[in-house]
Design a protein around this nucleic acid. Structure first.
Lengths: 131, 131
DNA sequence: GTATTTGCAAAGTGTTTGCAGAATA
DNA sequence: TATTCTGCAAACACTTTGCAAATAC
């Protein structure tokens, strides 16, 4: 984030970094409250936008269309497999898809091609816990 | 759609079939009006849900999170390249991705893995028209 | 004749924005 | 002190739902 480092932004960064999974803005807002660092909901949204703009978080949409955020791993992975039950997420090795997207873009006559790839399923732990 | 064939559902099917690109529920509603067959917005939503349930339409989300629908091609393609400017869409040959998704699913220990893959860009026509 | 469907209007959701006051550099 | 940031509340857009009247079978 480019701007000033305020108490609120620091808290957003800290709590977000503590999640290795995707969280919604709303949930992040609740967690901040719970952590005793109340931050206005709009501030949370604005902070997340800033992080998104600067590529520090990856964004995904759940089935309801809600935006979910998670800190982008240092190694630059950008696609995930999510558990629909518990929300646990795992970065994927997606070179294959990456190359495919590039090729399709190049062959299509389209420019500025961007891609979204998301996998979801039910993780082993959840499958075991509640078949 | 399983239920009764009403004037409204017939109109939704007909107008939707006439689009080879993605349209939102709202836009479909407008087009129905324009075509002189007014259909309530909720009815449009309900019809689209039914079509989605029975796999007759593909659904995609635009950047704002709005749901976009298009009739699913007979040959079963399920991923698209969309123009962000004009909305034109083209089904993709996505075997590569399909197989990748299957493999990742199998290796991950996740079950019931589903995937979402969307490409977007600016089509040649739009690039020419407005660089 | 009866179960289903429609359409309106109201409610619901996540997100964005205007603006006055607070906080930072 | 000048600029940026915060937080509330209101605004927004899309979607869903309750319910009485209309309709298909």
């Amino acid at each position: 984030m480019g701007g000033r480092l305020t108490r609120q932004r620091a808290a957003v960064l800290r709590v977000l970094a503590g999640c290795q999974d995707f969280v919604s803005a709303q949930e992040l807002h609740l967690r901040l409250d719970a952590a005793g660092v109340p931050v206005g909901l709009s501030t949370v949204y604005r902070a997340l936008h800033a992080l998104e703009r600067t590529g520090q978080v990856d964004v995904v949409r759940d089935e309801a269309g809600e935006r979910l955020y998670r800190p982008r791993p240092a190694d630059g992975h950008r696609h995930y497999l999510l558990c629909r039950r518990c929300g646990r997420s795992r970065p994927l090795d997606s070179d294959v898809v990456e190359r495919w997207a590039e090729r399709v873009g190049a062959e299509s006559g389209f420019s500025a091609v961007e891609h979204t790839v998301e996998l979801s399923g039910v993780c082993a732990r959840c499958t075991g816990a509640r078949a």
